[in-house]
Design a protein around this nucleic acid. Structure first.
Lengths: 272, 272
DNA sequence: TGAATAGTGTCTGTGAGACAATATTAT
DNA sequence: ATAATATTGTCTCACAGACACTATTCA
């Protein structure tokens, strides 16, 4: 055929083959802090995610993860994700990691679309203005402690709905598969991305410092523990928690007062 | 614009937007067993990977991972990977998991190609005939114990070459990045896939049963330990290894004899 | 004063690291 | 007999789970 690579490349036309579109979808996670009626009680912590209400076909009026099409000429998938986040919540330089690539043949009714998903973590307090009016934070509540049937309630203050799935774990590879059993409000296969992303974060906060991307600069160990508990959806023992977290935090000279109980020392994240 | 989703979809033409091509690349791993001169010595175990010699542009005459273009109309990326494996090594129903999606804008000189990579594990003994003549198993040798600069020697009996990289670990997320420092023989960004894949397998054999996909039906605990050591690139203590592996294996009534030392009991994989 | 959280002490059991000792084979 | 591996015993140390105890604040 061709004698040199240059010659080959000059004659190569990608349009001779079937092509496809790709999107980046972002699971943006943060922590909500809900004031309690009882002044003594500590603020409740919940994991929350950003959803966007679609005002175009397909899945018009359903909620979905922020996402958008890759520009194949200029962008990496992470570039796309960053561009979308900038647009939706006006945020830059936040933590992001690739989650998984979703590629069911019929996952998008428009055409063949393969989507690479990303997990992004942020301290919600940093987001103040210029959030897309169609975007909204939903607090997550894990309804079941059951490890097989996972029920999640999503609530943004005015809308509330549930997604449910059956989780199965392959014995040998420990890889997790989710079979969606309930979903009336979320578009595409995005519920699966949510389930998988939470799984990833749950695993990783046990052996990484990922939580701190969602924490404010100063926090108490009690708050930090509540955040762990919200993500893992289980109670932790205080002494054990403090022992294991000790190497990751640094005590400050500040304390948090005015709360009807012994004031707690404020800590910051200690790298390394 | 459109009043119904059907109407919208009828008028939607993906060709109005820039599209791209995708490939699946497969890191097929197995274990080699090398006879020693000394009849008493146990067979040496090495991790080995399948590479294919390219006989077309681009990267003509270089080696690469088995891979191929996704057919966007019919296939998932895993379907593509399976089709390729069937073609290259005539194997079906082997273990496979998605590794990572590689999407540098210029990673392929032909056009924009995003590649999703898969890890596949197999017991090499099952592969006997009908292997693609351009494909070849390369034994891997980790030259440095250094955790930052990773040097891997690849050898298929007639060709031998090295790939090297600098590994850096993000403190907070524990995510690993590789910067390629030496590679003269492997096409595309496939060395990165190799480094990442080995990392994944190393992590996962510690808490999953993945090794057994690469083991024959019957094996001794000594062999199994050698396999772990080959993958992890470090010596393990025997009593500790046996304690931890105990729940995953089942003793049989067979022993392996004829080897100049106390015969060892043959074990099989025990699920659950 | 008391409700509520903050923070510390310590006992126990599990499991990995380390080293030692014994067992069995082909040449 | 010996080299080489197979297999088991056991001591120690680190660390998580569990529970108990003390400290401090504001209404």
């Amino acid at each position: 055929m061709y004698k040199t690579e240059e010659e080959f490349l000059k004659n190569y036309n990608p349009k001779d083959y079937d092509q496809l579109s790709m999107t980046s979808d972002i699971l943006l996670l943060s922590i909500s802090s809900e004031k309690q009626e009882n002044y003594r009680k500590i603020n409740e912590k919940k994991l929350s995610i950003l959803l966007v209400k679609r005002n175009e076909f397909p899945y018009k009026d359903k909620w979905c993860l922020p996402g958008g099409f890759l520009n194949p000429n200029t962008e990496t998938l992470e570039d796309t994700a960053k561009r979308i986040l900038k647009k939706e919540v006006n945020l830059e330089n936040i933590y992001m990691e690739q989650l998984y690539t979703y590629d069911n043949v019929n996952r998008d009714p428009r055409c063949r679309v393969v989507s690479t998903s990303f997990i992004a973590l942020v301290d919600k307090n940093k987001i103040t203005d210029k959030i897309n009016p169609n975007a909204s934070w939903f607090n997550m509540e894990f309804i079941t402690d059951n490890d097989k049937n996972i029920k999640i309630n999503l609530d943004n203050g005015s809308v509330s709905f549930k997604i449910e799935c059956k989780k199965s774990i392959d014995a040998a590879s420990r890889s997790v598969k989710y079979e969606l059993t309930k979903n009336d409000f979320i578009a595409f296969d995005h519920p699966l991305i949510i389930f998988n992303g939470i799984e990833r974060v749950r695993n990783k906060i046990e052996y990484t410092d990922l939580v701190f991307y969602m924490m404010p600069k100063y926090f108490t160990l009690g708050e930090l523990q509540k955040v762990y508990e919200a993500i893992l959806n289980k109670k932790l023992l205080e002494p054990a928690f403090r022992r294991t977290i000790a190497s990751k935090v640094k005590k400050t000279n500040y304390v948090q007062t005015g709360e009807g109980h012994r004031p707690s020392v404020l800590f910051t994240y200690k790298k390394g």
